[in-house]
Simulated assay, not measured.
Amino acid sequence: MDALDLLLNRRSIAKLSSPAPEGKVLENIIQAGLRAPDHAGLTPWRFVIAQGDGLNKLSEILVKAALADNSEQSVIDKVKGAPFRAPMVITVIAKVTEHDKVPAFEQHLSAGCAVQAMQMAAVAQGFQGFWRSGHWMFHPDVHQAFGLQGDDQIVGFLYLGTPGCTPMKVPQRDLSRFVEYL
């Protein structure tokens, strides 16, 4: 797949099934994440891969957080099943290093770039994925379960697997609504 075509036609696919990326393909996905912009070479990323029993562990982490919030049963049921929407979920964490020239915000953005690069690497190799965020990535119980400290932040959950459908066509957008010149 041509790189420009990949970027111009990127779409998330939420219907994912087995197999998940593995071996060299998974290594390429991680390596792509490690190529994200990295001011001062701080390498502000951490990737926690859940598959197989790891999906059960991720489910338990999310359920514990939902219970701590006294969530309704429907919310608990939803978070319990969330990790099983794909055969692999990579929790991407901005591992922040205190630095006078590189604020935590910039390190969070770098980790976000890593997620995008990883998703693109998956698609380029015939897999698909979607990036989820939301309330749980900010929850203190989830942070504790992943060992976050200080300004560390989960920037997303990257679900990966084999596409279960054809992506919808990318909507064309009027550039004049988004672009200005000084």
Rank of each mutant, 00 (worst) to 15 (best):
M88F: 04
H99A: 08
E22T: 14
H99T: 10
G112P: 13
G23T: 12
T43S: 15
V48R: 14
M120W: 12
G23W: 06
H108Y: 00
A121C: 04
L26Y: 12
P21V: 03
L62R: 01
P37S: 06
Q116H: 13
K57G: 06
H108T: 05
A121W: 06
K78S: 09
G33K: 02
V75G: 03
L55K: 06
V96R: 11
D77N: 13
Q73D: 15
P103V: 08
K80I: 01
V79G: 03
F47I: 04
A117Q: 15
I29N: 00
A82M: 14
M120G: 05
M120K: 07
I61N: 08
G54W: 11
A66S: 12
N70Q: 15
Q51D: 09
Q107P: 06
P44M: 05
E106N: 05
Q107R: 05
A82I: 01
D77V: 04
A32L: 08
P83A: 01
P21I: 00
A82C: 03
P37F: 02
A104T: 10
K80R: 15
F84Q: 09
A66D: 09
A36E: 08
M88S: 03
K95D: 14
G112C: 10
I29Y: 03
M120Y: 13
A86T: 00
Q107L: 04
L109S: 10
A114H: 03
Q107F: 07
E98N: 06
V115P: 12
Q51G: 04
P87N: 06
Q31L: 15
S71P: 07
G52E: 03
K24F: 04
V115L: 10
V123T: 14
V48L: 15
H108W: 13
V96G: 06
G81T: 00
S74Q: 15
G81C: 02
A36F: 00
K24E: 15
A36P: 05
H39L: 04
P103M: 10
W45A: 06
L34D: 04
A66T: 07
Q107H: 07
K78I: 01
M120S: 14
I29R: 02
P21H: 07
V89E: 00
I29H: 05
H99W: 07
S110D: 01
A94V: 10
A65F: 01
A86L: 01
V75E: 14
A114R: 04
I61F: 13
T97E: 11
L109P: 10
K24N: 12
D77K: 10
A86R: 00
V115R: 13
E60F: 06
L109Y: 13
Q119S: 12
N28R: 14
K64Q: 11
P37I: 05
R85Q: 07
G54C: 09
H39Y: 08
E98D: 14
T43G: 10
P19N: 05
H108A: 02
M88V: 00
A121R: 02
E106A: 07
Q73I: 14
A65T: 01
I90R: 01
I61R: 05
A50R: 07
H99M: 08
T43L: 14
S71W: 03
S110L: 02
